[in-house]
């Protein structure tokens, strides 16, 4: 089944990137019937408006699929997860990076973040899983970070190890989340922005003349 009409539709509605990934290998038994991941990205700062935009795009995708008789499950943006719901349990079974890499929209960089060749890490992601039998895009299987180790050298907590990600071993710990979190915890007491963000600011792909959208 051709996914182009859906991709075009979501892009006219404001999506920056839309990809279709075969995510079968990453699915746990609860959601194993939803074999395609629709990765949706917008190139905006992650704030309330961006989240609302992603929610709107997901709802549009779900409606489009429903009208054709397919199932779907929206995995909301990471910053929009209501904590006390039963359905929330399913969200953490699936990670947006999986949909993005499986649909060829980027790789997981040495900094542990999804890097897109054009936009770097300056994208906000949401995923819609579906059982619609879309023809999947070609996945990204290798990191394209190469020899660059700017994020390794600039990470103030020493969390970035310099490992290469591969699609074959997506669970390898590339960044020591413990060290990253420890720094964040220390910063919370004296900063309103506890995420230091150096690993994004120094990344050539994220710098690459790419400002966020107008916001």
């Amino acid at each position: 089944m051709d996914a182009e009409p859906l991709k075009r539709f979501l892009k006219t509605e404001g999506a920056t990137l839309v990809g279709i990934g075969d995510v079968t290998a990453a699915l746990s038994s609860e959601i194993i019937h939803l074999r395609r991941g629709i990765a949706i990205a917008v190139n905006r700062n992650l704030n309330r408006e961006t989240v609302d935009q992603l929610i709107r795009l997901q709802a549009l995708a779900e409606g489009w699929l429903r009208a054709k008789g397919y199932r779907s499950l929206s995995i909301p943006a990471d910053s929009d997860r209501k904590k006390d719901k039963m359905i929330t349990k399913l969200y953490k079974l699936f990670c947006h990076k999986t949909a993005a890499t499986c649909s060829g929209l980027g790789w997981v960089g040495k900094n542990g973040l999804l890097i897109n060749r054009e936009y770097g890490s300056k994208l906000s992601w949401a995923t819609v899983l579906t059982n619609a039998p879309f023809r999947a895009d070609a996945p990204t299987s290798q990191s394209e970070c190469g020899d660059c180790d700017l994020c390794v050298r600039h990470c103030p907590s020493g969390a970035v190890k310099g490992e290469h990600w591969t699609l074959a071993d997506p669970l390898k710990e590339i960044v020591s989340y413990e060290k990253c979190r420890a720094l964040k915890t220390r910063r919370i007491s004296h900063s309103s922005k506890p995420n230091c963000g150096f690993c994004i600011t120094v990344c050539p792909y994220s710098r690459n003349g790419n400002n966020h959208g107008t916001t």
């Binding site: 959601i31 019937h33 939803l34 199932r71 499950l73 719901k85 039963m86 359905i87 399913l90």
Partner: peptide, 14 residues
């Protein structure tokens, strides 16, 4: 229905 639907129904029940 599959597990996702069940959980959403459970949320509605709650």
């Amino acid at each position: 229905y599959f597990v996702p639907e069940i959980l959403m129904c459970a949320d509605a029940l709650y």
